[in-house]
Design a binder for these strands. Structure first.
Lengths: 340, 340
DNA sequence: GGAGTCTTCCAAAGCGCTTTGGTGATTTTG
DNA sequence: CAAAATCACCAAAGCGCTTTGGAAGACTCC
């Protein structure tokens, strides 16, 4: 059932039927009702391929997926996707993932924009002066950055959490508890979020005249194994830290294992705070010692970004507004006063 | 730069240029070279919207993503996606995720097929007599099932791992080591993979005249918390098992925590084997006691399924061939003889 | 009652590609 | 050497929608 057939059985022109269906004003309300009714009765759905050829609109949002045999997709992606999907579903938006060589995403961005394959894109895990942001900005396709980049001479729309504030609060708490030697087990420090977290810790320490020493900062991809290695390295130093801020729950698993291997205890020998993106399958309160966290649901961020993308596509949102969400500090059993 | 312009500057018809570019035989090789050369030089890329309107081909594969505020996407999805993306990238295939109400995916399947939004789809986490499989089969779109359904009067193409064989081997090993009371911490037993795993365990036990008791089977979504709960329940029974087969590494985390909480040890009091889908961020050899596993890379499965989908789209593969991959049994420190 | 203004509808021209159905020119065949 | 086959190309008709540029009829207003 296509437009031609439908308009023929209604004894109307394709123009009128099309306009009736798309809510244009220049059609009699009575006629519109007839059309909508007939469309529903015959299960007419406009062919999206034809529509997009005519309008350029696709009803899809895009994401360039960095891939490669040595490239791992972040497990956070799934949770983000849950949120995005939640919103997208109720608005009949689809998401198209365009796999790209992790080292050359630009070609793919150019392709999907030139081909008008999607109405908008989002960018995740941005770095300072991220080329993708600059590119997408000049290409002129609606976009939202999940997280923040830095060092541009233009503004851009983003949704981020207050990573600096979160880790500042976490570190401040630890300092208040008497800790003098703090360590940070961070994610990949080429990404902005990691830089902001480190900044937050440093600022909190500085406020008490303390310093985050270089040998007390680890920056690694967020795996259990890397958490373990980092913790071993830190805790076997001569001036081992008495408290650790950790960028992910998965790494925290490794930290806990290292602590146990070394015959130490939490929070007796070591206080631990980790960032929790809220996975349904791994909860900080269920760690052997319930884990204090800075918490922010990455799933909600996904939904929010879908919402903003939809708003941009339909022209309801424009400009370069950035939003920064506060992060909750949730104190549980894994922190205590510094050992004597 | 579109076809019209390109053909005009070449002083050829659109027909010839189109055919030259698409490798049709009825064009002079010399001409073809000229055309291809000019196309490259001017960066001509056929508009996909126009092409799909004309041909019905989209260059995309589809996946209906079950969503809902209470629905969690399986973390395995990310790894699967890595593999899929790996293959898709090198073949310029995109993946479109269509979010759907988890309780009504059929509408979405019908939509994407009726609208010709994708060239092929894959189905994951199938159940016995899965309606999606039946639907997609009748709709006539190329598809591959990741996993297996059961109880149809038709065959269908799938790629699955030998879940039954894997858990049969795991259980057989445990029985050989003298274990008489085995338990199974399984995934959602409405899904075929879980049914197969249980079947494998039962068969191994039966071979030695043993039985898998009902109270020794747990079937839950695969979270750390559920692993913990299941293990507590099992180990606090009067006839607690001396060995557990567990369907996921994430649940195994919870099992280990439960064992520790109860003051027991692995493998002294309990032998443990879990299934490992091979996550880069959580490795069985790094468990406090290295975990024995049945191992199969879900990432490879993703790549394989992308490959098969591509083959089906281009007509290189047809028919209902199913393939079942063997699973490795990797023995590490978490298994030992049954306690006396 | 005729000029102007809405209202409501339509024919037809795109959007940019593929594919059908030819058409001359060249080569092969009996 | 005429007939048949092959080669290399083209004009135009789709694919199914949206949108432009009217146009007919109904209504208002002096």
């Amino acid at each position: 059932m296509n437009l031609k057939q439908l308009s023929h059985m209604l004894a109307l022109s394709q123009t009128t039927v099309s306009r009736a269906l798309n809510g244009y004003p220049e059609v009699n309300e009575e006629t519109r009702r007839r059309v909508i009714d007939a469309a529903k009765r015959h299960g007419y759905r406009p062919n999206p391929s034809a529509r997009r050829l005519a309008t350029g609109k696709t009803g899809m949002i895009g994401y360039v997926l960095p891939t490669g045999t040595t490239v791992d997709i972040d497990p956070h992606f799934v949770e983000f996707l849950s949120g995005l999907g939640d919103y997208a579903r109720s608005h009949e938006l689809d998401l198209v993932l365009s796999p790209a060589d992790a080292d050359d995403q630009e070609t793919t961005y150019r392709r999907i924009v030139a081909n008008r394959q999607v109405d908008a894109v989002y960018i995740s895990s941005p770095r300072p002066a991220d080329r993708r942001v600059a590119l997408v900005n000049t290409l002129g396709i609606p976009f939202i950055v999940h997280g923040r980049s830095e060092g541009f001479d233009f503004d851009y729309p983003f949704t981020d959490i207050d990573n600096e504030g979160a880790f500042h609060e976490a570190a401040r708490l630890l300092v208040q508890l008497g800790h003098r030697r703090l360590a940070l087990i961070n994610g990949d420090d080429r990404e902005t979020f990691a830089i902001h977290r480190e900044r937050g810790v440093r600022r909190a320490l500085a406020a008490s005249g303390l310093l985050l020493r270089d040998q007390h900062v680890c920056s690694l991809t967020m795996t259990e194994e890397n958490g373990y290695r980092a913790a071993r390295r830190l805790l076997e130093q001569s001036d081992a830290p008495t408290a650790i801020a950790c960028s992910s729950l998965i790494m925290a698993l490794g930290v806990v294992r290292a602590v146990r291997d070394l015959g130490l205890t939490i929070p007796g020998d070591l206080s631990l705070i980790a960032h929790d993106d809220v996975f349904p399958w791994l909860k900080p309160e269920n760690f052997s010692v319930p884990l204090s966290t800075t918490r922010s649901s990455i799933r909600l961020a996904g939904a929010r970004i879908a919402e903003r993308l939809a708003a941009r596509i339909s022209g309801l949102e424009e400009g370069a507004r950035g939003e920064v969400w506060p992060v909750d500090l949730v104190v549980r059993g894994s922190v205590a006063g510094a050992p004597a």
